[in-house]
Design a protein around this nucleic acid. Structure first.
Lengths: 172, 172
DNA sequence: GACCCCATGTAATTAGTTACATGATTCG
DNA sequence: CGAATCATGTAACTAATTACATGGGGTC
């Protein structure tokens, strides 16, 4: 997935790895911190697949830059990805849901304590996102991304209430 | 993560791989389809780590079963996992958000078409989940898991509205 | 005969995480 | 002197996905 976001960023402007990392993390508004190494390995794979090509820009004093731009194939691949909606949206790979349910099946009392703690985690996560969202340096796109996180956190909080109610009513 | 759910399932009752796969998919209510191979590789890793141990049960005609149960270490590890809430909930690794935003930054018109298509995908996914949720064979735990999926789908639909509004108002 | 159920596995590939390695410049 | 910034990378590990391999039994 990172691969496509990098392609999209390169579609806006050719950049080198170090720059890309900053652009990526900036766009993601702190919701996805990259190890710089991953950027270079991903770029290497993209280059191997012929989707991007580097131009070496020599610098005095500082190390050479490898500025990557999209190839025709890269543009095609990016367009292909952007054009088709994501299907198969029913996959659930969320640790919280599974953990809370597993605990509920094993030990009701501990499940209620877990739910309380998890609620706190969600609330403080939401507060932190809201702070970033409100900060002046946040762009519109990043703001929308943070809205997505907030909406999901709210949904997940509602779900915790649902589970708590089920436990209280001995349905679990 | 699969690893912990398998531990939790084995905590309820010792089972062999083939059984575990069915129990897992049943609990997940179709939101996570496993390749049976993954169950065996995961169990092998758990055995290597000393968290589970197999008892071979010979059968006539059919292949031998390896019935796994938790070791003391396995129980401890499961309890440890169940007890601590999940933190770091701000990570965003959702293809839809990134794709829609990337498209919005590149091409407004196509972004609106993508949003419309994505909305359809969400709606039909929700309908499918609701159908499963309503079916008689769905247990309470699985029902709650499906509720989580539904709440998220609703949140994600709201988010699509938000992005559409931003595009309409030329904020993107 | 083809397909599903039971039951076990291996191999290959992709994606992401964490840690390590190198080296110059600039700021406090 | 130490830390941050600029700039490149490699290596090891974990997790998940997909495909392949084997083989008996029952059902349509």
């Amino acid at each position: 997935m990172l691969k496509y976001v990098l392609l999209a960023l390169l579609g806006r402007a050719p950049q080198h790895g170090y720059e890309l990392k900053a652009a990526f993390e900036d766009l993601l508004g702190g919701t996805w911190l990259l190890n710089i190494g991953q950027v270079y390995t991903t770029l290497a794979r993209l280059e191997q697949d012929g989707l991007v090509e580097p131009t070496i820009v020599t610098q005095e004093l500082l190390p050479d830059r490898k500025v990557y731009s999209l190839t025709q194939l890269g543009e095609k691949e990016l367009a292909r990805w952007l054009d088709e909606p994501v299907s198969g949206l029913i996959r659930l790979r969320d640790e919280v849901f599974l953990k809370v349910l597993a605990q509920a099946l094993v030990d009701r009392r501990r499940a209620r304590s877990l739910i309380a703690q998890q609620r706190d985690e969600y609330v403080s996560a939401a507060a932190q996102v809201a702070r970033t969202r409100a900060s002046a340096s946040t762009t519109e796109a990043t703001g929308l991304l943070l809205d997505a996180v907030l909406l999901r956190l709210e949904a997940d909080l509602q779900w915790l209430d649902l589970v708590e109610a089920a436990i209280k009513e001995r349905r679990l």
